[in-house]
Design a protein around this nucleic acid. Structure first.
Lengths: 156, 156
DNA sequence: CCTGAAAAGGTGTACGT
DNA sequence: ACGTACACCTTTTCAGG
């Protein structure tokens, strides 16, 4: 199971293009890879069905919308039993301020990226939301100055 | 200047929808927000022109493509003068393994996410590419087990 | 697995409200 | 600023190589 094969060069080129331009037409894609629209559409659908393409998203400039604050937050839980992890993750999924969350190896750590309009809104999120989630023991914040690169995901 | 206003509820709803479905048709968007296709297309174009929508991207399941290794890497430069930062960033932009990069406040200067097919490919990237970039002084890697949440960006 | 043609569906413009 | 109408373009389906 779980293979990654059956992906040929056409698929790879399609993936590379739609990573950079998710709204390109099937026709233009066909021109770019040297195929007529029909097989491109079929390949696209197959990649979606196999969940190699998991979705399409518009990239939004958060700062243009007034979300000037982006903070990396490390969270330690006080115990790492499965119940605690599940409860924490459920809470995280419901917070719109958390745009990204990873479960890390090591000591029951989560790494989050939290986006807010201001530092005071961030503080509010910390004291009003995050610290109130059951099981949260330690929180550590790191503040970035600027995003240097944003690819989203790697392509073949 | 350069503000977040002139964005009304229609725009916000459009943004929220295209964040989750970047390939939705203008027509379906219109149905969803209660507008005919024409104004929706105008609003979309305006959001793109104002660079609030900076692009569209397909989300690719890296692991389905065989990129099983994702590592957070902290990089410290031996000096923080502007030349060194610029040279480092130029190198980072050219590495396909680096899918995300932030310039941080504090002492650990850059935070990267690096994606490779295997641990040995990651090691190769470290010793063959990253450590060879001029000015790199310290490198620290953290390994995630699993991605819990992936929103891409925050929406109003 | 491809092409090509025809049907169905989406887009963009002009114009009226 | 929104909606409708219509011409144009894109996507999908299906026949055939």
């Amino acid at each position: 199971m779980a293979n990654s094969t059956n992906i040929d060069d056409f698929d790879k080129r399609i993936l590379r293009i739609i990573t950079k331009n998710g709204r390109i037409s099937v026709q233009a894609l066909g021109d770019a890879v040297g195929l007529s629209p029909t097989p491109v559409a079929r390949r696209l659908r197959r990649l979606e069905e196999r969940e190699i393409v998991t979705g399409y998203s518009a990239m939004i400039d958060e700062t243009a919308l007034g979300f000037d604050v982006s903070v990396f937050v490390s969270v330690k839980l006080d115990r790492q039993i499965d119940d605690a992890l599940q409860a924490f993750e459920k809470a995280i999924l419901a917070f719109p301020e958390v745009v990204d969350c990873w479960l890390m190896t090591g000591s029951r750590d989560y790494l989050l990226r939290v986006v807010t309009r201001s530092m005071s809104e961030f503080e509010q999120f910390l004291v009003g939301s995050l610290t109130r989630v059951k099981g949260v023991a330690e929180i550590e914040s790191s503040i970035p100055l600027r995003r240097v690169k944003q690819t989203g995901s790697r392509t073949p």
